[in-house]
Simulated scan of single mutants.
Amino acid sequence: MRPTIGRIVHYKDTEGKTLAAVVVYVNPDTNGIVNLSVWNEFGAPFRVLNVRQGDEPEQWNWPPRQ
């Protein structure tokens, strides 16, 4: 699935914690590199730019289906 603006995704921070994020920009020249608006565990927002999809720290991925 391709990311689109407004989609909710998961972002892993540098410590490996999974945080809620929203896609705010999709780089059209790349495969899955996006800019995100992320909320930390205290609800404070921050931005991350040029994030690749994956399961490693500082990457985003789709939330698991339940």
Rank of each mutant, 00 (worst) to 15 (best):
G43W: 06
W62R: 01
T4D: 13
G54M: 02
S37W: 11
G43M: 09
V24P: 04
Y25L: 10
W62A: 00
G6I: 03
I5L: 14
N35A: 02
V51I: 14
T18N: 13
G43S: 10
P64E: 11
M1Y: 10
P45F: 00
G54K: 04
A21G: 13
V48C: 05
G6D: 08
R7H: 07
N31C: 10
V38T: 01
Q59M: 14
V9K: 01
W62K: 01
T18F: 10
L19A: 05
P64F: 05
N35Q: 14
P45N: 13
P3D: 10
G16V: 04
R47G: 07
V23H: 02
V22K: 11
V26A: 08
V51Q: 03
N40E: 14
D29L: 13
F46K: 05
H10G: 06
R47A: 12
P45D: 02
A20R: 07
V26W: 05
V34T: 12
V34W: 03
V9C: 05
P63N: 08
P64A: 14
T14A: 01
G43T: 11
P45M: 02
I33N: 08
A21K: 02
N40S: 03
L19R: 03
Q66D: 13
V22N: 08
T4N: 12
G6R: 06
V26K: 03
G6K: 10
T14V: 09
G16D: 05
R52C: 14
T4S: 05
V24A: 04
